[in-house]
């Protein structure tokens, strides 16, 4: 089974993430980035499927020069090859445009049996690109998989919803997005790190995908961020040490604020 995994290079959630004041886009230059943590689960799941059978795992990303780090990490974990779509015109693209670029990249790679993604990026966190991508590829999408089983002609997925735990079956080709419950991503081994240096990574521009700058980027986005403001720091609260009266003091606070 051939699998394409879509990954994203994101600003580190542990750092002070912010926006570019000039154009209201995410600041990706002044904050250290890395492979989105949630995408590691997608890479791991793809590797497990291929290791248990046959086929290869191709990792694709859309992003600036530094995004090659996200591909490198996935190759170190064990993916076979990478595709990096990198074009200045893509800067500021929204989810609709990102899904367009990913869809064209996957068509150029050759439609795989399975496309695997994380449940959402850790920066934008909308979680809609996987579904948009499936729509553009004309395939079913099964999102938020907590368990994934591959059979001959399809996949079976367990999704833990609020009201029920549901088993969903889909035919291949299809797209599956996975949660952080599905597996425990491996750390790259020394051997994996060395092997990754020799793995092929294609560099593609919009032109290579038959796309035009007018279809992507900030100026052509379907949505626009009008303004952003940092959440004001919360006022310093009252902190008491429990000396046998902590519970009563807590209830007193709740009563004062009319919660009881």
């Amino acid at each position: 089974m051939n699998i394409v995994v879509c990954v994203k290079y994101v600003p580190d959630a542990q750092a002070d993430r912010t926006f570019n004041a000039s154009d209201n886009t995410t600041d990706r230059a002044n904050v250290d980035g890395l492979l989105s943590e949630l995408d590691e689960y997608a890479v791991e799941e793809a590797l497990k499927i291929v290791e248990a059978g046959e086929g290869e795992v191709t990792v694709v990303t859309v992003g600036p020069d530094q995004a090659s780090d996200a591909i490198k990490k996935a190759l170190q974990m064990g993916a076979d090859k990478g595709v990096h779509v990198n074009d200045d015109a893509i800067h500021g693209s929204d989810a609709i445009a990102t899904s367009l670029v990913l869809a064209e990249a996957i068509k150029k790679i050759g439609m795989p049996d399975l496309v695997v993604t994380g449940m959402a990026s850790t920066d934008g966190t909308m979680g809609v690109v996987p579904t948009m991508l499936a729509e553009r590829l004309g395939v079913p999408a099964v999102t938020f998989a907590s368990e994934l089983t591959v059979s001959g002609s399809g996949v079976s997925v367990r999704r833990d919803g609020d009201a029920a735990s549901v088993t969903i079956e889909a035919s291949v080709p299809c797209l599956v997005s996975v949660t952080d419950q599905i597996n425990e991503p491996r750390y790259p081994s020394f051997k994996g790190i060395m092997a990754a240096k020799k793995k092929p990574v294609e560099q593609w521009t919009l032109a290579d995908l038959g796309l035009d700058a007018s279809q992507v980027g900030l100026a052509n986005a379907w949505t626009a961020v009008q303004s952003f403001e940092a959440r004001p720091p919360r006022a310093v609260g009252t902190i008491v040490k429990d000396e046998g009266d902590g519970g009563a003091k807590l209830a007193g606070f709740l009563s004062e604020r009319k919660f009881i």
Binding site: I239, V240, D242, G246, G247, A248
Partner: peptide, 26 residues
């Protein structure tokens, strides 16, 4: 504690039952 309006430094197994009783009593 940087985020709170009200915080209790203590063992939740002591604080919560006392708070629960106080809420019930109210």
């Amino acid at each position: 504690f940087e985020l709170v309006d009200f915080g209790v430094v203590g063992d939740l197994f002591a604080v919560l039952p006392a708070a629960t009783d106080a809420v019930q009593a109210s």
